[in-house]
C-alpha cells in the first residue's frame, strides 16, 4: 500500500485532534448511535409515561404539572410507585441529574433493577457496534452500511470474549478496591476528622485512585479493541497482551491522551452546567438542549475512540489499515510491464 502523506503524526495532541477530525467527518455514525440510544430509552419511557398519565388521570394537578415541576405531586407519585416509577424524582432534572449519575457510579450505588437491565442491554449493543465503529474510524473514510455492520458482526463475538476478560476486572474494582478505599481506608482516616474540607480532599484523592484504576482497565480494553480491529486479531487474549505491551512502551503518552479526552468530556460537562434547562420553560427547548448534550457526549466518545485509533496507527509503521484488499493485477502484457519496470 503506498505511503499516505496524510498519515497522522504520532503525537498526543496530534492524535487527539485527528480523533476529533475523524469523529466530525463521521456524522452518520454519531447520529445513528444517538438515534439508537434514544430508541433504547423508549420502552422504559413509554412505561413510565403510562404510569404518570394514569396517576394524574383527570386531576387538575396536571394543569400545573404540565408547566412546572410539582414536587408535591412528584413525591406523591414516587411514594406509591414501584420499580421504574421510583426513579421519577427531581434528581433527574438538569445538571443535578448528571451529578446524581456520576456520584452513583463513583459511590457504587446500585441502579434500579429496570434501569440496570437497560444498561446491560445498552452495553451489549455498544459492544456490538464497537467493531463497526473502530473499523470506520480506522479507515478514516466513509464506508457503506453493509460494510459497517459486517465489521460489527465480525468483531461482536470477539469483543464478547474480550468482555469476559475485562468484566471480572471491573467487578474486582467495584467489589474489592472500592470498599477498600471508601469503607476501610476512608472510615479509618475520617474516624476522628472534624473538618469537611479535609474529608473532601481525602475523598477526592480516593476518587482519583479509583478513577486511575478504572482508567487503566479502560485504556487496556480500548487498545485491545483497537489492535483487534486494526490488526485483524482473532485472539482477544493476544489482543489484550498486545495492548498491554503497547501501553507499557509508551505509558506517559497513552495516559496523557486518555486524560486529554477526559478533559474534553469535563469541558462538555461544564458547558452542560451552563445550559442545562430548568424544569420550567418550553418543552421544545428542554428537549433540544438535553438531546444536544447527549449527542455531544456521544460525539466526544467517538472522538475518544478515534484518537486512540489514530495514535496507534501513527505509532506503528505497519499499522496502516489493511482492510483494503491487495490489488489483483489483470493478466495483460501492459499490466505486466507496469508491474515490472525495467
Amino acid at each position: 500500500m503506498p505511503f499516505s502523506p496524510d498519515r497522522p503524526r504520532a503525537t498526543v495532541l496530534g492524535a487527539f485532534l485527528e480523533g476529533w477530525r475523524r469523529a466530525i467527518v463521521a456524522p452518520v455514525v454519531t447520529v445513528s448511535i444517538f438515534v439508537a440510544t434514544l430508541l433504547f430509552t423508549l420502552p422504559l419511557a413509554f412505561a413510565l409515561r403510562g404510569m404518570l398519565e394514569t396517576h394524574l388521570g383527570q386531576s387538575m394537578v396536571a394543569d400545573r404539572a404540565q408547566w412546572n415541576w410539582d414536587e408535591g405531586w412528584a413525591t406523591e407519585f414516587a411514594s406509591q410507585a414501584q420499580g421504574l416509577g421510583r426513579t421519577f424524582t427531581h434528581e433527574m432534572l438538569g445538571f443535578g441529574g448528571t451529578m446524581s449519575i456520576s456520584s452513583g457510579l463513583l459511590d457504587a450505588r446500585p441502579l434500579a433493577p429496570a434501569v440496570a437491565g437497560a444498561v446491560v442491554a445498552y452495553v451489549m449493543f455498544w459492544i456490538f457496534l464497537s467493531g463497526g465503529i473502530l473499523d470506520r474510524l480506522a479507515r478514516a473514510r466513509p464506508v457503506r452500511t453493509h460494510a459497517f455492520f459486517a465489521a460489527c458482526g465480525v468483531y461482536f463475538v470477539r469483543f464478547l470474549r474480550l468482555a469476559l476478560f475485562i468484566a471480572p476486572i471491573y467487578w474486582v474494582l467495584f467489589r474489592w478496591l472500592h470498599p477498600l478505599l471508601f469503607t476501610t481506608i476512608y472510615d479509618r482516616l475520617t474516624r476522628d476528622m472534624t473538618s469537611e474540607q479535609q474529608a473532601l480532599l481525602l475523598r477526592g484523592g480516593l476518587y482519583l485512585i479509583f478513577l486511575a484504576a478504572l482508567m487503566l482497565v479502560s485504556l487496556m480494553a480500548d487498545f485491545a479493541k483497537v489492535r483487534a480491529v486494526v490488526e485483524d486479531r482473532r485472539s482477544m487474549l493476544a489482543a489484550l497482551g498486545a495492548s498491554l505491551r503497547f501501553i507499557r512502551r509508551r505509558p506517559l503518552r497513552t495516559v496523557t491522551l486518555y486524560l486529554l479526552n477526559v478533559l474534553a468530556l469535563l469541558v462538555l460537562a461544564r458547558l452542560w452546567l451552563q445550559i442545562a434547562p430548568p424544569g420550567w420553560g418550553p418543552t421544545w427547548r428542554a428537549l433540544l438542549l438535553t438531546q444536544l448534550f447527549v449527542l455531544a457526549r456521544l460525539w466526544a466518545r467517538l472522538a475518544f475512540i478515534a484518537s486512540e485509533v489514530a495514535f496507534f496507527q501513527g505509532e506503528l509503521a505497519h499499522a496502516q489499515y489493511t482492510a483494503t484488499p491487495d490489488p489483483i493485477w489483470p493478466e495483460s502484457p501492459s499490466a505486466e510491464s507496469v508491474a515490472r519496470p525495467r
Binding site: 440510544t37 434514544l38 433504547f40 430509552t41 423508549l42 422504559l44 419511557a45 413510565l48 409515561r49 403510562g50 404518570l52 398519565e53 394524574l56 396536571a62 404539572a65 404540565q66 415541576w69 426513579t87 421519577f88 433527574m92 432534572l93 441529574g97 448528571t98 449519575i101 441502579l111 434501569v115 437497560a118 444498561v119 445498552y122 424544569g279 418543552t283 428542554a286 428537549l287 438535553t290 438531546q291 448534550f293 447527549v294 457526549r297
Partner: peptide, 17 residues
C-alpha cells in the same frame, strides 16, 4: 404533563446509559 416530564426522564436515562 406526562409527555413533558417523560422527555426529561428520557434525557436522564440516556445519560445513565
Amino acid at each position: 404533563a406526562a409527555d413533558r416530564w417523560t422527555l426529561h426522564w428520557i434525557a436522564w436515562l440516556e445519560q445513565v446509559l
